[in-house]
Design a protein around this nucleic acid. Structure first.
Lengths: 228, 228
DNA sequence: CGTCATATTGATGGGCATCAATATATGTGG
DNA sequence: CCACATATATTGATGCCCATCAATATGACG
């Protein structure tokens, strides 16, 4: 993977919009590419911050582990998105675990020292940071609401409806980006509950579910379910 | 309330640390003080952003209302803290409701136009924004974890242990900042469940609960409960 | 002192987790 | 290419946590 490739990847990130070309080049020079397999860790919670990360390919899930061992997924980060920006600037340690959800996954690690220096010097970067953090904040607010107020079924329905769908005339096919086990963790439910929900909906002819795809048959009813 | 008072209030905010005196004065000139009673709204969800807010006295709760009418409290904002910074910069509308939790509550509204202009000009403000947003993000991440992974009892125990306590030799007295009804909403449980939990713990001689205060008798057991 | 919000307590039920067993994919080496 | 091992997914039985509905008690405040 060439320097030019890295420059291109970085330049496409929302975080670095408006940055001068040589600034991006400087960041690229301070970046390292990690190739990961599903399950490999990017960072561990509590680890000292070395830099921030941008996903190039595959996906990364951010999660925490509760005292009793259960893990809660905070978010899944896809290609073209960054994470750990906030930790780098205001904390000394990463606040959550991060690991690849697919094979292969490619992650760019952007050196914290260069980034921090540039943050001081370039106003554009400050703008990008604010935009990026706001976006994260907004997503977390959504999650708080979902997890506390909505039922398991409503959360699943929302999730399915938010997924990019293919197909027409009332038969939208959505591809699950992760195995169902992991989807359940993201939704804050057990795999069993997820399975039962899909089965129940299939019996009511709202959806058709196979291993990795879900076909939405009855859009309207599903939208009702999404509202609890 | 004098201009000097407003300047002093603004200068003490984390968001404006490091700002030049005349910048703070300019912000103060663009600020208006609202005096509110418990239950009065500061902003409504979906309303166009006019400015950001700083709490001077009392408290404000930020919350959303689910399709079925239930409300989830995102956070309670106390004196010396700001809210709606993120909305102002990156969105056109407020993403949640805000209302006073106490009588009297005093809130400073800082004009969005002046703030935005200053954000462009003053690097210090960008720094403050990033710090502030990071702090919000971190709190929301904590909430996601708590709401999804922890039981009602664990959430309550955590909350009590995090509260500033007075008193010695194994008898820590904590003052509830809000009525129990509201505390329950914040914890994502019903008032009935809250009441039952406290009663059960009182029977086990872990705490003593009165209207607005809780005395923690058995610190260790409570910490165990806080871990589910 | 009466009125209203807040708080407690009880009875009941449902949603979802847990435990356990089986089925179906996925991948590996012979 | 198939048999085996492992991870993922389904399905059932059971139970608990917590919400809901309902009634009463208690405090706050004019």
């Amino acid at each position: 993977m060439s320097h030019a490739d890295i420059v291109e990847t970085l330049g496409a990130l929302a975080l670095f919009q408006g940055l001068a070309a040589d600034s991006v080049a400087a960041l690229a020079a301070a970046s390292r590419l990690h190739s990961l397999q599903r399950g490999e860790r990017v960072v561990h919670e509590g680890e000292p911050c070395r830099g921030l990360f941008a996903v190039r390919k595959g996906g990364v899930r951010l999660f925490r582990i509760a005292p009793d061992g259960k893990e809660q997924i905070l978010h899944r980060v896809g290609p073209g998105r960054t994470f750990a920006e906030a930790a780098l600037l205001t904390m000394s340690c990463y606040p959550a675990h991060a690991e690849a959800t697919e094979t292969p996954t490619e992650v760019l690690e952007i050196g914290g020292d260069v980034f921090l220096r540039m943050f001081e010097e370039d106003r554009r970067l400050a703008r990008g940071m604010v935009a990026s953090l706001s976006s994260w904040l907004h997503r977390m607010v959504e999650r708080v609401e979902e997890l506390s107020v909505l039922s398991a079924g409503a959360r699943l329905a929302r999730y399915l409806l938010d997924l990019p769908a293919a197909g027409e005339d009332g038969r939208a096919t959505v591809e699950l980006p992760v195995p169902k086990k992991e989807l359940a963790a993201y939704l804050g439910i057990t795999p069993e509950t997820l399975s039962r929900l899909l089965r129940k909906w299939q019996d009511r002819e709202l959806v058709e579910s196979t291993r990795r795809t879900v076909v939405i048959l009855d859009f309207d009813t599903l939208m009702t379910l999404a509202e609890d």
